[in-house]
Amino acid sequence: MLSVHVLGAGAGGGFPQWNCNCDNCAGVRAGTLNATPRTQSSIAVSGDGADWLLINASPDIRAQILSFPALQPARARRDTGIRAVLLVDSQIDHATGLLMLRELDRRLPLYTTAMVRQDLSTGFPIIPMLGHYCGVDWHELPIDGAWFRIDGIEGLSFSALALASKAPPYSPHREDPHPGDNIGLVVRDDASGRSLFYAPGLAYIEEHLRPAMTAADLLLIDGTCWRDDELASRGVGTRRALAMGHLPQSGEGIDGGGMIDALAPFERQRKVLIHINNTNPILVEDSPERAALAAAGIEVARDGMDLSL
């Protein structure tokens, strides 16, 4: 059985964000909103419930491990249920947690694209840094949809698909996008054939993604913003969701609609949004926006959520 555990469901900065006093963040701190805090996005998957692949290593990884006993030491003095780490991109909120894993008593198996490895060896040189601690055994992810296996993760197969995206601001090729800067990931249970499509950063649904999404049983995808101009409307910034590589849910001002419309053709699949920005009104459980998602058959991920296939 494919087990999927949501370690963190928030976008960069989490919810509430440490320096933000928008209505959402102020309300959840004061306890006046029907909303639950979230750490920064990361999931773990397993085929046997004992050995886990960590997909994205957020800055909150220590607290996330403490909240999930399956990843904690249980078999030896120094131990973890994490057998390997896979990154879908090199964004700070998905890679910084690697530094928290430096005390591993073996070399860290790390699966990324070549472009992510380049970023994490230059602009944000985590991989060379870890060489002074546990060390890294790097494995390159194919980005053409070919199936591959991960040592130590039994019963699961994986497939990576390149997404249209930009590298992080620190990347040497920030203004020169390359295939592999960001991926969508398919995780398939070998016994049942059931699968997950995971893409926490999704600017739009490209045609080459549709077969994998149509075949999947669970879509766990980008829920960053409700509106394209959300940061400006909340008075906390000027950057637009689409410019950051995130398709907003409402689709206001977007040709072809937003994420709600984009997911409508996928009627059979369970649809869950993850990587939710602190400004997004869907974090408020009794909000009209949350009700609109529910009417469209779309759920909102929360920390600690288990999704079994």
Rank of each mutant, 00 (worst) to 15 (best):
D79M: 10
D306L: 13
S171C: 01
A294I: 02
N278H: 15
A160L: 10
Y111P: 01
E175V: 01
L242K: 02
S121N: 13
L202V: 00
L98P: 04
I282C: 07
T80K: 10
V4A: 05
L202F: 00
M100A: 14
W147E: 15
D60I: 06
Y198T: 03
T214Y: 00
Y198F: 15
G10C: 08
A44G: 12
G81E: 09
L87H: 06
E207M: 08
R234V: 05
G245Q: 08
S121C: 13
L263G: 08
G135D: 00
A114G: 10
G123W: 05
A11R: 13
G97A: 07
I127Q: 13
N24H: 10
D60C: 09
G297Y: 07
S3A: 11
S192Y: 06
L54S: 12
A296T: 01
K166Y: 14
P169G: 01
P69E: 06
S46V: 01
L7P: 03
A199Q: 08
P169W: 15
P59S: 06
I282P: 06
G297C: 05
L307I: 12
S159K: 02
R102T: 05
R270T: 15
D217T: 07
H246R: 11
E206W: 11
V85Q: 03
A167V: 05
A35T: 14
D51R: 07
A199R: 05
A301D: 02
D261K: 13
T80C: 08
Y133F: 11
G27D: 04
A241Y: 01
W138N: 09
A212L: 02
G184M: 14
P169L: 11
G97M: 07
L71P: 09
M213L: 07
T39R: 12
R38G: 03
A301P: 05
F266A: 04
E267V: 14
I254N: 06
G201R: 15
H178M: 03
K166E: 01
L202H: 03
D255I: 05
D23H: 13
A146R: 14
A50E: 15
T113Y: 06
R240A: 00
L130E: 11
L104H: 13
R227I: 00
P288W: 10
L66K: 14
G123A: 07
S41K: 14
R268A: 08
I254H: 01
R210Y: 00
V236C: 07
G131F: 09
T36A: 08
E252M: 08
L283E: 11
L263N: 07
A243L: 04
L141T: 09
N21H: 05
W226C: 00
P288G: 05
A215I: 00
L185W: 02
